[in-house]
Design a protein around this nucleic acid. Structure first.
Lengths: 250, 250
DNA sequence: CGGCTTTTTGATGTCCGTCAATCAGTGTGG
DNA sequence: CCACACTGATTGACGGACATCAAAAAGCCG
């Protein structure tokens, strides 16, 4: 087995691991029984004002949750990779203000919130859903911290590293190279910068031989020095070893 | 009854309201049976690395969740007001990276995560916990959007208005005036600016007769024009009418 | 009154945004 | 097959919003 990626990754409470494992299994099985959907690039998986949105499990592709202002400004609040769940707040909210958009072609399973709520009578499922929401929050904590206190270079470095770690833990990649289906403008909307400055920052990272990003392909040429850039940040929280999301196919 | 504060506040799914009400009642009752704790200004309610942190319900005072970098930079990620729950991710996480600090003297009830997990066998409680986590996420979405895409003036205006709305909905205040036990440096750490610039921005708001902030006292002199400043932002999500948190005393 | 934190203000600098033009990649239809 | 259009990437010149540095003033507390 792979060793833990980082010494102080938040782990799940031991007392809860059993339930989390069970809940994880049940939940994924239920989603995999649903029909598979697909949306193309820039397509909406759900949008605000569209009634009760679904809860989804991403199987292939990348999606992002965003908030758009009327004047054209936009914030990309969270990024969902294969294996991530989205729309969990639809469990309780009739109408949120968020929208979920496919960055590239996305294949996903969807469930109605009502069906999921019924599954929550199983405490293991309920606990697992709590864990999923907590995970989302850890991701957001991180990006929030980055946007609040890191400079452009650090922000981009952290962003590239975090996606790398998330993909690696799911064993979707093995080497420090991956496909990132976001335009520089979308990256800018996620990191709180302008497209132009994202471009310049990426160029500098390239010149410094830290990372190369071109045409949706990311190559981390020096992971160690990248990590050193953001060494002040706490580790990326993710599922503990026994909870890795292995069931993606189906 | 008061009318809804905003036409398109996200409401809870009708199908879930019954359970949410029940869960809310049970949950608060359980917390109110716990002994009351108190911490002074700048005291830690829980910190990273302190073992399994508690889940808490704030009764009096204001607390903030923050992430500190070794070089002294700090991000204040979320603000907790009376009636808010904190540390919900301790339900699943053994060791997070967050810390919760009292802004002024805070009185709160605390429960061990294990006890709460046992209560989750009740689906109503589980659903209510999900709702609480969703609510936290809506708050963070908002501040994330603000820090990513609003300028300093808009950020401060939104910040002051949001706290105002949160306090008002809990009926902790009736007029556009409240106590805000944060230093300008802490406000800066929450909004992603420097203390100096927060100060200047507050001065401009005062000169424009929009809001006065002095010595922890906030007076919104022109709520309408303040709202106009941030009219592009979606409404602040909060509990629907039947779910207002009324049980604070005890 | 000291000693502390917090606020306030000025002077100066810089990181990043804005504007604008060019270039590259992709698709389309004549 | 090549104009044409369109989106996204890239780069330069310039400006501004915000940060940094520094110091004084104002609260706060024993």
């Amino acid at each position: 087995m792979a060793t833990t990626l980082n010494p102080n990754v938040p782990t799940f409470s031991p007392a809860a691991v059993e339930d989390l494992l069970t809940g994880n299994r049940i939940l994924r099985r239920a989603f995999l029984e649903q029909p598979s959907h697909s949306v193309g690039r820039q397509g909406a998986i759900y949008a605000s004002g569209g009634g009760e949105g679904p809860v989804i499990l991403i199987q292939r592709g990348v999606a992002f949750r965003s908030c758009s202002l009327p004047d054209g400004r936009r914030a990309i609040i969270d990024l969902l990779l294969p294996g991530d769940f989205g729309g969990l707040d639809h469990l309780v909210s009739g109408s949120g203000n968020e929208e979920l958009t496919a960055a590239n072609t996305v294949a996903y399973r969807a469930m109605r919130p009502a069906a999921l709520r019924e599954m929550m009578v199983n405490p293991a499922v309920a606990l697992r859903l709590t864990a999923l929401m907590a995970e989302t929050r850890w991701r957001m904590d991180r990006n929030m911290t980055a946007v609040i206190r890191l400079d452009a270079r650090e922000r981009v470095a952290l962003f590239l590293l975090d996606i790398y770690d998330r993909l690696r833990r799911r064993e979707l990649i093995a080497r420090p190279t991956y496909n990132l289906p976001l335009t520089q403008e979308q990256i800018a909307d996620h990191l709180g910068m302008t497209m132009v400055h994202v471009n310049r920052t990426l160029r500098r990272l390239r010149e410094d031989r830290l990372a190369m990003v071109a045409q949706q392909v990311v190559i981390l040429t020096d992971v160690d020095r990248l990590r050193a850039l953001v060494s002040g940040m706490p580790a990326l929280a993710d599922l503990a070893e026994p909870l890795r999301d292995m069931v993606l196919a189906g």
